[in-house]
Design a protein around this nucleic acid. Structure first.
Length: 412
DNA sequence: AAAATGGTCAACCGCGTAGTT
DNA sequence: CAACTACGCGGTTGACCATTT
């Protein structure tokens, strides 16, 4: 487990990059691709360690990087994904085209985190701070477990969405290798994408729920999840349709998580690049909710339109809390605790839980969880319209929150 | 005008892990 | 299987700039 000594070598330059260094690195990668980062500096004539070169490339020189202010939609995406994924910046970055994990991380730390804090929302848990204070230790532990489960499921979603990208990038890279000498962009992106995919899938959080499928092949990850039936159950509910191309066929994986208008508006990782004219289009989180909001999504820049935040905060907080509580109830489910059946848990799935966010379910409100959520994804006994409406409210409130919260409100 | 303070962000550091020998 | 290499990730630092005092 030796650590890379590359950065310990003496004589290597550190600190800000000069334009000359940038030019050298850029020219080398354009011509040869980055190849081995460790070997690159010598070949490119740079007095830098490979790590530094990689960082400079991925965070600054890469041609497919968008710089400048984050749009409102990007902010929304970050906040939501952070609620789901925590500080997994690379995973979050996969949903934000042309943004680097470093940039997102910085933006979160310098803008969004503060904004949420000012609003009385814990930026770590995304719960109202008052609520966090009230919760007992036991609840906190349970919530932590739930968070892990949520992360597993969200990771699955990431992987699925990323599959599309990976496949596309591979084919793109292949085309370029076949057709031209300029391969740097696609090869870099492809390797990054693949690596991120592996890395994320292989990086379980502290106490993950049941072990996920083996992750050597990203498709292997998805097979049990998709074929095992939990998605079927969701599909059966009409809530979500997820397909991964031809099973096990990397050639044409298409991944779509789409929702009908009446479906619970969780998030839609829009694959669909196959018929997308924009080659740079990445799977973006698409918030499908009640009307009205969609238009605001295209508003420019988050500095504006942060009005009406207080009511949104209230709604957001309470809904988020309800969501968490329902997760607690589900996670505490006896079958999940004792049966050890991975299928059960897999079938339950975070998405399913999300869809089941129904605070009216009495079994969910009882401590220690009750006999609920046995995973048929049918929405239980409650009325579908109410159920969908609750979920609509939940996600829309997040949208409203972001849409309406002033970045520099005098209120705070 | 100068000093102090705060905000931003590029870059570094250390760790975990996949892959290789 | 152990040792090692290489890489990517997230946390942190520090230089730079803007604003305030």
């Amino acid at each position: 487990m030796g650590r890379s000594p590359c950065c310990d070598k003496v004589g290597l330059k550190k600190g800000p990059w000069t334009p000359e260094e940038d030019q050298k690195l850029l020219a080398y990668i354009e011509e040869h691709g980055h190849g081995s980062w460790r070997a690159l500096p010598a070949k490119a004539g740079l007095q830098r360690c490979g790590k530094s070169c990689r960082l400079r490339w991925t965070n600054y020189l890469r041609p497919d990087i968008k710089r400048g202010k984050f749009s409102l939609q990007e902010e929304q995406t970050i906040i939501q994904l952070h609620a789901l994924l925590g500080n997994r910046w690379s995973a979050i970055a996969t949903h934000l085209p042309k943004r680097t994990d470093n940039e997102i991380k910085n933006y979160w730390n310098t803008h969004l985190k503060k904004r949420l804090t000012k609003m009385g929302i814990d930026p770590v848990t995304h719960k109202p701070k008052n609520d966090a204070l009230l919760s007992s230790d036991g609840q906190s532990k349970t919530a932590a477990n739930l968070s892990h489960m949520a992360q597993w499921e969200s990771a699955r979603l990431e992987a699925e969405a990323r599959l599309v990208r990976e496949s596309k990038l591979r084919s793109h890279s292949l085309q370029q290798q076949l057709g031209s000498s300029s391969t740097f962009a696609s090869s870099s992106s492809a390797s990054t994408s693949a690596s991120v995919l592996n890395n994320n899938n292989n990086k379980p959080e502290a106490q993950p729920p049941p072990p996920p499928p083996p992750s050597r092949s990203s498709l292997d990850v998805l097979k049990p999840w998709n074929n095992g039936g939990w998605l079927k159950s969701i599909e059966g509910s009409g809530a979500i349709a997820s397909t991964v191309g031809v099973s096990g066929d990397l050639e044409s994986p298409t991944s779509t998580l789409s929702f009908s208008e009446n479906a619970p508006p969780i998030m839609s990782a829009i694959g669909g690049e196959n018929n997308n004219n924009n080659d740079n289009a990445m799977p973006m989180i698409e918030f499908v909710g009640s009307s009205g909001n969609s238009s605001s999504l295209v508003k420019e820049e988050g500095e504006q339109e942060w009005k009406g935040y207080d009511s949104s905060i209230t709604t957001f907080s309470s809904n988020l809390h309800e969501f968490t509580m329902s997760m607690e109830g589900t996670w505490a489910h006896e079958s999940l605790r004792t049966s050890g059946s991975h299928d059960d848990i897999v079938e339950e799935g975070f998405t399913n839980l999300l869809l089941k966010t129904n605070s009216e379910d009495p079994s969910l409100s009882s401590e220690g969880g009750g006999e609920s959520n046995n995973g048929d994804g049918d929405g239980g006994g409650g009325s579908h319209s109410d159920f969908y409406e609750d979920n609509n409210n939940y996600w829309n409130s997040i949208l409203n929150l972001v849409n309406s919260s002033p970045s520099d409100s005098p209120m705070f």
